[in-house]
Simulated assay, not measured.
Amino acid sequence: MAASLTALVALDAKFSHLPAPNVDLSPVFPARLCLSLHDNLGAFEAWREALNIDPTTVVHRVQSGGGTRVLKVHGLFAGADIELVGFAPVLVPEPVVNTGAVS
């Protein structure tokens, strides 16, 4: 897990001004560092841009049930595979209420 820990230290040193993500490390994928951001796709975008990850490689999906959108992308930083994930609610427009009034 040396690569992911080294990358985490480097991320903190270089990008401490960015919104704090949730950080996940796993011995199953020792060279991967997962950064997840919740309810703030602007923060996801700021991290994607800071890590210089191509925006065309972002994968978008909506979780089953339709309530949460998920953005996911991978990039390399300081020798580690960075998995960047953003979660945000799917915004549903307010229904238009017909009051019967004529304008």
Score class of each variant (00 low, 15 high):
Met1Pro: 10
Met1Ala: 15
Met1Arg: 11
Met1Cys: 05
Ala2Thr: 14
Ala2Ile: 14
Ala3Cys: 02
Ala3Ile: 06
Ala3Lys: 14
Ala3Asn: 10
Ala3Gly: 03
Ser4Tyr: 01
Ser4Gln: 09
Leu5Asp: 07
Leu5Trp: 04
Leu5Cys: 08
Ala7Arg: 00
Leu8Phe: 11
Val9Arg: 12
Ala10Tyr: 04
Ala13Gln: 15
Lys14Ile: 02
Lys14Trp: 02
Lys14Met: 06
Ser16Lys: 11
Ser16Gln: 12
Ser16Cys: 08
Ser16Glu: 09
His17Cys: 03
Leu18Ala: 03
Pro19Asn: 06
Pro19Thr: 08
Pro21Leu: 06
Pro21Cys: 08
Asn22Lys: 14
Val23His: 05
Asp24Glu: 15
Leu25His: 12
Leu25Ala: 05
Leu25Asp: 03
Ser26Met: 04
Pro27Asn: 13
Pro27Gly: 14
Pro27Cys: 14
Pro27Met: 12
Val28Ala: 07
Val28Asp: 09
Phe29Tyr: 11
Pro30Ala: 13
Ala31Met: 03
Ala31Gly: 02
Arg32Met: 15
Arg32Asn: 06
Leu33Glu: 01
Leu33Pro: 00
Leu33Asn: 00
Cys34Asn: 07
Cys34Ser: 10
Leu35Thr: 01
Leu35Cys: 03
Ser36Leu: 07
Ser36Val: 06
Ser36Met: 06
Leu37Ile: 15
Leu37Asp: 00
His38Cys: 02
His38Trp: 13
Asp39Met: 07
Asp39Val: 14
Leu41Asn: 04
Gly42Ala: 12
Gly42Asp: 12
Gly42Thr: 12
Ala43Ser: 14
Ala43Glu: 08
Phe44Thr: 00
Phe44Gly: 01
Glu45Phe: 04
Glu45Arg: 06
Ala46Ile: 07
Trp47Val: 12
Trp47Glu: 01
Glu49Asp: 09
Leu51Gly: 04
Asn52Cys: 04
Asn52Met: 09
Ile53His: 09
Ile53Pro: 06
Asp54Gly: 05
Asp54Met: 02
Pro55Leu: 07
Pro55Lys: 15
Thr56Lys: 09
Thr56Gly: 04
Thr57Trp: 03
Val59Leu: 09
Val59Phe: 03
His60Arg: 11
Arg61Val: 06
Arg61Pro: 02
Val62Gln: 05
Val62Gly: 08
Gln63Glu: 15
Gln63Phe: 05
Ser64Ile: 14
Gly65Phe: 03
Gly66Lys: 11
Gly67Phe: 08
Gly67His: 05
Gly67Trp: 09
Gly67Thr: 08
Gly67Lys: 10
Thr68Leu: 03
Arg69Asp: 07
Val70Pro: 00
Val70Asp: 00
Lys72Met: 11
Lys72Cys: 08
Lys72Thr: 15
Val73Ser: 00
Val73Lys: 01
Val73His: 00
His74Thr: 14
His74Ala: 08
Gly75Pro: 01
Leu76Met: 10
Leu76Glu: 11
Ala78Lys: 12
Gly79Ile: 07
Ala80Cys: 11
Asp81Leu: 15
Ile82Ser: 00
Glu83His: 06
Leu84Tyr: 00
Gly86Lys: 01
Gly86Tyr: 01
Gly86Asn: 03
Phe87Ala: 04
Phe87Val: 06
Phe87Thr: 01
Ala88Asn: 11
Ala88Trp: 01
Pro89Phe: 02
Pro89Ile: 03
Pro89Gly: 10
Pro89Leu: 07
Val90Gln: 05
Val92Lys: 11
Pro93Asp: 13
Glu94Tyr: 10
Pro95Trp: 08
Pro95Ser: 09
Pro95Asn: 13
Val96Met: 11
Val97Tyr: 09
Thr99Gly: 12
Thr99His: 13
Ser103Cys: 13
